Simulated scan of single mutants.
Amino acid sequence: MSNILHILNGDSTLHSFNQTGLDGDVMVWREVLSEGPLQENISSGTFWSNRSRWIKKTFNEPEEEYQHKVIDELGKLNGQYDEVNLWFEFDLHCQVNLLGVMCILNQQTNMSAPAVFLICPGDFPGIDDFRGIGQLSGDQLEDLYDSREQLSDWEFELAAEAWPLYVNGNADELEQWLNGNSFWGALHLLKPALLAHLKRLRLNANGLNHIEQKLLDIYNSGVKTKLEMYNVFWSAEKIYGMGDSEIDIYLERLSQKQFIN
């Protein structure tokens, strides 16, 4: 077994990663912790069984598929690695998943803790509308790897503070914590992502959060097909990193509240 593990933020990155010459085992993180039920103890069985049920109900995905795509992959974290590389992105979807991974790694208190590195670009030279590392070639990923940052205990402590604040969803407590932190180290993209999340926690006079209101504005502007709505939303709100099935969750809420047909 290789002594290096690469944790990739999704299958789009896997496609590009397979074009690199980088050594190591690969684990693909296929969860979407930015949506659905969470609890603080991410290592508990109930955490993952609740996730499995929610994914099945929301995205119509069979539980055995979840077992194969998510749970079996998580088993790779039990390997004895000298080095773990976390390949994640700047958006809320990825930053929450990153917090989850860091919390799991932090709870594995074996004495031979691996060196953990983060590859998390907010932009990329020559790409104007950078959406994520899945856009990049194998050579470009190797360039990113060369400039990776090692995570210290300090960053893991920061993640351990951020995770329960995210899970509990108290807007005032989260805002106070974000304003109280002036140094973010290698996790400098966490703050803008959590500020975007803060806008999801607060409701306006219509009883809608920022994403719901944004989608309603797009709908009311005359954009009616789902694909067009996705594209307008993505261009304006790429900080959320949402796929079409995640946007559908919010469109369904607007429909249930009878804001849209």
Rank of each mutant, 00 (worst) to 15 (best):
D248W: 03
D217N: 15
L203A: 07
L178F: 11
L216D: 04
H188I: 07
L203H: 13
G243D: 06
Y219M: 04
W163D: 06
L165V: 05
N170C: 13
A186N: 09
I239P: 02
K214E: 15
L216R: 02
N168H: 15
L165H: 07
G185D: 03
I239Q: 14
N220E: 15
L201D: 05
G169I: 12
H188L: 08
G185Y: 04
D217H: 11
H197L: 10
L194E: 00
P164F: 05
G222L: 00
I239S: 01
L178H: 12
L251E: 03
K214S: 15
M229S: 05
N170F: 11
M229H: 03
M242T: 00
L195D: 09
R202S: 09
N170M: 10
L215Q: 10
P164N: 07
D217R: 07
L190R: 02
D172M: 13
P164D: 07
E228M: 11
E246Y: 03
W184S: 10
R200Q: 15
L203E: 13
N179M: 12
G207M: 10
L189E: 01
W177D: 05
W177C: 05
K214H: 12
A205I: 07
S182H: 13
L178I: 13
L187N: 03
F183A: 13
P192Y: 08
W177F: 15
G207Q: 11
R200H: 10
L189G: 00
N170R: 13
T225C: 03
P164V: 06
S245H: 13
V167Q: 04
L195S: 06
N209D: 15
I239D: 04
K224L: 14
F183Y: 12
S235R: 14
W177S: 04
P192T: 10
Q213F: 06
A236F: 05
E237G: 01
H197T: 02
E212I: 04
K226H: 13
P164Y: 07
N209A: 03
W163N: 05
Y240D: 02
V232D: 01
L165W: 05
S221K: 12
N179L: 14
Y166W: 06
N181M: 14
Y250G: 00
L187W: 00
L208D: 01
W184I: 09
I239C: 04
A205L: 09
Y240S: 01
L201R: 10
N220T: 09
Q176E: 14
E228P: 04
H188F: 15
N231Q: 14
A193K: 01
E246W: 00
G185K: 05
P164L: 08
A186V: 08
D244V: 06
L227G: 09
A196V: 01
D217T: 14
E237P: 01
